[in-house]
Simulated scan of single mutants.
Amino acid sequence: MSEDRSRIGPKSAEDELPQTSGGTKGLSLRAVIPNAITAAALCSGLTGIRFAIGGDWDAAIFAVILAGLLDGIDGRIARLLKAQSRFGAELDSLADSLSFGMAPAIIFYLWTLQDLPRLGWLAALAFAICCALRLARFNAQIDMDEQPHKSAGFLTGVPAPLGAGLAFLPFYLWMATGEPIFREPAVNALWMVAIAFLMISNIATFSWTSLRPRRNVRLELIAFVGLLFAALLLEPWWTLTVIGVGYLLLMPYALFRYGKIKQQRAAARGEGVQ
């Protein structure tokens, strides 16, 4: 029997199981806070387009990054306040599609892809469409009882906010080095299509729940996060490059980890049948 979606939102995190309830209909007052954060994320992402139209590229990129940070906290605040709602779930998916699909596509097109008017626009469209398809897939699967990736603590494909961040990797390198090769439209068109494919792919990727550091390294992890934040302030473009490349390098390891879990589950099922 499928689970009721009435309390999911602003968007249930992709690595969390939906909650069931017979909650009251409508939007409660406490639900305004997380949904206001979602609206702020939407405004931030779309404002990035405005900056790009004016040629203020770094502000455009940071506006999308800010949208990603806000998107990361709205659902958690909703669950903390017990303010999940179907309205919030739909609003968040719409905001994600615009902030991490349409906005990056247009910003990237204005920055470099417009030098290839037809192929560049097709690459931008591919990115925006794949982002929307990814979010539609998430909404369609949210009621499914059997989700192998989620039950193992993994995501399916690259999440939309991370996809937007990875799409901008050539821009980070261009800002950090000034090398014109990183603004080459043909190379960037292929890059954007590749990231679009990763978003709608079925490969297992890490989620927050699958990253569980051992107790003996938690202090070191806290120190690392603090230093990473300082690096973002001092050398934002190199730091964003390292984060993006690091995530890409972790993807094969995520596949390896998920493969091990699948083998363990298969072995457990085999033992259960015997």
Rank of each mutant, 00 (worst) to 15 (best):
M1P: 10
M1W: 06
M1Y: 08
S2F: 08
E3A: 14
I8T: 12
P10K: 07
E14T: 11
E14M: 12
E16R: 08
E16I: 03
P18E: 01
Q19R: 10
Q19D: 11
L27V: 15
N35G: 08
T38N: 01
A39I: 11
A39Y: 06
A40M: 15
A41K: 10
A41D: 08
L42P: 06
G45C: 03
T47I: 03
G54I: 09
G54M: 12
D56I: 12
D58Q: 15
D58C: 14
A59E: 14
A59Q: 14
I61W: 15
I61V: 15
A63D: 06
A63I: 07
G68A: 11
G68L: 09
L70I: 10
D71Y: 01
D71P: 00
I73W: 10
I73M: 12
G75E: 10
I77S: 07
A78K: 04
R79F: 05
R79C: 09
G88R: 00
L91P: 03
D92P: 05
F100G: 05
G101C: 03
G101W: 00
M102V: 14
A103Q: 00
P104T: 05
P104M: 13
A105E: 09
I107F: 08
F108H: 09
F108G: 07
L110M: 13
W111Q: 00
T112S: 15
L113E: 01
L119Q: 12
L119F: 14
L125E: 05
A126P: 01
A128P: 07
I129S: 02
I129F: 15
A132P: 03
A132Y: 05
R134F: 07
R134E: 01
A136F: 04
R137E: 06
F138W: 05
N139T: 04
A140G: 11
D143A: 13
E146D: 14
Q147K: 11
H149W: 07
H149L: 08
S151K: 12
A152C: 07
L155R: 02
L155K: 05
G157K: 06
V158A: 03
P159R: 05
A160N: 08
A160G: 07
A160F: 05
L162R: 09
G163L: 01
G163W: 02
G165W: 12
L169Y: 00
P170H: 03
F171P: 00
L173K: 09
A176Y: 10
T177Y: 13
E179P: 02
I181Q: 14
P185I: 06
V187I: 15
M192V: 12
I195W: 03
S201E: 06
N202Q: 14
N202D: 15
I203W: 13
I203F: 13
T209R: 14
L211R: 12
R212Y: 00
R212C: 05
R214C: 08
R215I: 15
V217T: 13
R218Y: 10
E220G: 15
I222N: 10
F224M: 14
G226A: 13
L228N: 08
L228V: 09
A231H: 12
L232S: 13
L233A: 07
E235R: 00
T239C: 06
V245C: 00
Y247R: 02
L248S: 00
L248A: 04
L248G: 07
L249E: 04
L255I: 11
Y258L: 01
K260C: 08
I261Q: 05
Q264Y: 09
R269M: 15
G270W: 03
G270L: 11
G270A: 13
G270F: 09
E271M: 04
V273T: 13
